[in-house]
């Protein structure tokens, strides 16, 4: 079998590699190159001035603040939801699973509008907030809410298939060896889901920083107040400052690259600390640690 298929695959290999490379270059490298080339289109001085513009710096701070809220909240929610849905069978489970897909399937604009309708000053909830001096929409809380909504499922959606594939054997082994539920979670379950979790966090982070539609609806577009980086890019572009728009876009791209670097560092660092990536040996190691 393998004797006949080998030569054919080796003949196909250069084509496949070339096709993959071509695709990568066309759809990833060239656009990224265009972003950076346009960003430096008016020289490094212009680039630095665009980045140091107070409105851009504020947009950067706001974007990071939004991520600082969205990331921990949705990681906590995602792990809890994935654990509950993968480990337990209960009535309404499939309904919740379906709801988890909502943030992916609902258009971001609709996601933003949900909060306008909920918290706009013309209805009970929004009116109550307004009367008590709490600003939800057109302020940071609204932007955080919209971001939470669109990023709420990333971690859970990464973890559920992973947890289901891993099964609960190792966890039961840990429990039968006398671990408390919390110990089992920390020492066995969490290390096992680490890679899925990390990937979920990277996706969540990328979406939270880059979300445009939902945030645009609830932002109010106040310059230097409620514009996140993606909104700032649009504003600069609309003001004929193309080099500036791409400078800010390159900032977003750099943030994304920083996220990926952070992910690689964590992966590398975990691997060096002797936690193998393959699930089976990791489990035995974990059980051994437990037993000691």
């Amino acid at each position: 079998m393998s004797g006949t298929s080998r030569p054919r695959s080796s003949r196909a290999r250069p084509f496949l590699i070339a096709a993959a490379l071509l695709f990568l270059v066309l759809f990833l490298v060239v656009p990224m190159g265009v972003v950076f080339a346009s960003a430096f289109g008016k020289g490094i001085g212009w680039y630095l001035r665009s980045i140091r513009n107070p409105e851009t710096l504020h947009a950067l701070r706001l974007t990071l603040a939004v991520v600082a809220f969205a990331l921990p909240i949705n990681v906590a929610f995602g792990v809890a939801a994935a654990w509950a849905l993968a480990r337990f069978r209960f009535p309404g489970r499939s309904l919740i699973l379906t709801c988890l897909d909502l943030p992916f399937t609902v258009s971001p604009v609709v996601a933003g509008m949900i909060f306008i309708i909920l918290c706009g000053s013309n209805n009970a909830l929004g009116g109550w907030f307004a009367a008590h001096g709490v600003k939800i929409i057109f302020a940071l809380p609204g932007i955080v809410l919209a971001t939470l909504f669109v990023t709420s499922s990333y971690v859970a959606r990464e973890l559920i298939p992973l947890l289901e594939a891993q099964g609960r054997d190792e966890e039961e082994a840990a429990l039968s060896l006398g671990a408390s539920g919390w110990q089992m979670f920390r020492r066995v379950a969490l290390p096992n889901m680490r890679w899925g979790l990390l990937y979920g966090v990277v996706l969540l982070n990328a979406r939270a920083m880059g979300e445009f539609g939902a945030v645009s609806v609830v932002s109010g577009h106040i310059r230097g107040r409620t514009n996140t980086l993606p909104l700032q890019v649009e504003i600069l572009y609309n003001e004929y400052d193309f080099a500036g728009a791409f400078a800010v876009a390159s900032l977003l791209a750099l943030l994304a690259v920083a996220t990926l670097i952070a992910k690689s560092v964590v992966e590398h660092w975990s691997a060096r600390r002797g936690a193998p990536v393959a699930p089976a040996p990791m489990a035995t190691a974990a059980v051994r640690r437990m037993a000691e």
């Binding site: 921990p72 909240i73 990681v75 906590a76 792990v79 920390r186 020492r187 975990s270």
Partner: peptide, 16 residues
């Protein structure tokens, strides 16, 4: 106030 939230949630990670 949310500084407390993840720490009190079993879903967040104590390890590492």
């Amino acid at each position: 106030d949310h500084g407390h939230y993840p720490a009190s949630d079993p879903g967040s990670a104590h390890a590492h």
